[in-house]
């Protein structure tokens, strides 16, 4: 029977992984908030809700990569490597979910503006209209509105409430429009024509954003395919002509070429991002 020999590297790796798995979720949350450049109410709320998913993801990703690495190579190097790439992996994953939530809130606020306009048209005062909407609808934006209304009823302006929640994104125009409506209300100006005008502006903005997004998706798919094809072809070639590929990868010039290709494609992705942006 084989004697159990304590593997100090293995024990240390397990301890390190356990420690990091405990620390990772909180650290990843902060890192993502900074990377997404958002410290507003929506993002903090989003990551608070994501924390369970985050803990599960951290635990299972480290455990699975550790197991695979241990069984194939006999070390936990794979898990440690995975721990290093986990932040970017997680950021890519959550950035999309976060963008979806942001868009949803902006869309909800826009719909609320329609409802407020309807109520203003039948003579409902502005605070009551906002309160009614925040009580009646059940969208994500409504939660935001209800928090704002609470402050609004206590005599604070919408702007103060928005600032208190650090509500900047999403839909900057929606946010500014609401402030504008509130300003007009406080000055006793006619609200209904203003809201109608704002809705028209916001509609144009939303349509523009959708068109930009559609275009960006098409371009990103093209870039993704273009950057992936050579690597897939390389793998296929490796399968059928391993000696050719091993010669190429093993040579000193080969390493330089592969690094250059990664750098060049990364630069391309960065420039493509800048080219696609409208604002």
């Amino acid at each position: 029977m084989k004697m159990f020999i304590p593997n100090y590297f293995g024990c240390f790796s397990i301890l390190l992984m356990g420690f990091l798995t405990l620390l990772l979720p909180g650290w990843l949350q902060d890192w993502c908030l900074r990377a997404l450049k958002s410290q507003d109410w929506i993002s903090i709320e989003f990551f608070r809700r994501e924390s369970r998913f985050l803990k599960k993801l951290s635990f299972w990703s480290v455990a699975i990569s550790g197991f695979v690495s241990w069984t194939t190579t006999g070390s936990f190097a794979g898990a440690i490597l995975f721990l290093l790439v986990l932040p970017s992996f997680f950021l890519t994953l959550t950035a999309r979910r976060y963008a979806r939530v942001k868009n949803q809130v902006a869309q909800d606020l826009m719909n609320n503006l329609y409802a407020i306009k309807g109520l203003l048209d039948v003579g409902t005062p502005f605070p009551q209209a906002v309160q009614f909407i925040s009580l009646e609808s059940s969208s994500q934006a409504t939660f935001l509105l209800s928090r704002i209304v609470r402050g609004f009823q206590n005599g604070k302006s919408l702007e103060t409430n928005f600032k208190k929640l650090e509500f900047r994104s999403p839909g900057e125009w929606v946010y500014r429009s609401l402030i504008l409506v509130e300003q007009a209300y406080r000055k006793g100006l006619a609200l209904s024509p203003l809201v109608e005008n704002l809705i028209q502006i916001l509609e144009v903005e939303f349509q523009a954003e959708k068109r930009i997004k559609r275009l960006q998706t098409e371009i990103w798919v093209q870039a993704f395919v273009a950057s992936l094809i050579p690597w897939i072809l390389g793998l296929v070639c490796w399968r059928f002509q391993p000696e050719i590929m091993e010669d190429a990868v093993g040579s000193s010039i080969g390493k330089f070429v592969f690094l250059f290709v990664i750098f060049w494609e990364g630069l391309g992705i960065w420039i493509l991002r800048r080219v696609n942006r409208f604002y």
């Binding site: 870039a223 273009a226 950057s227 050579p230 070429v257 592969f258 060049w264 391309g268």
Partner: peptide, 14 residues
């Protein structure tokens, strides 16, 4: 952009 940044690496890799 694709032509300049993605086609040459593809050709190089192939």
């Amino acid at each position: 952009c694709l032509l300049f940044f993605f086609l040459p690496p593809a050709l190089v890799l192939i």
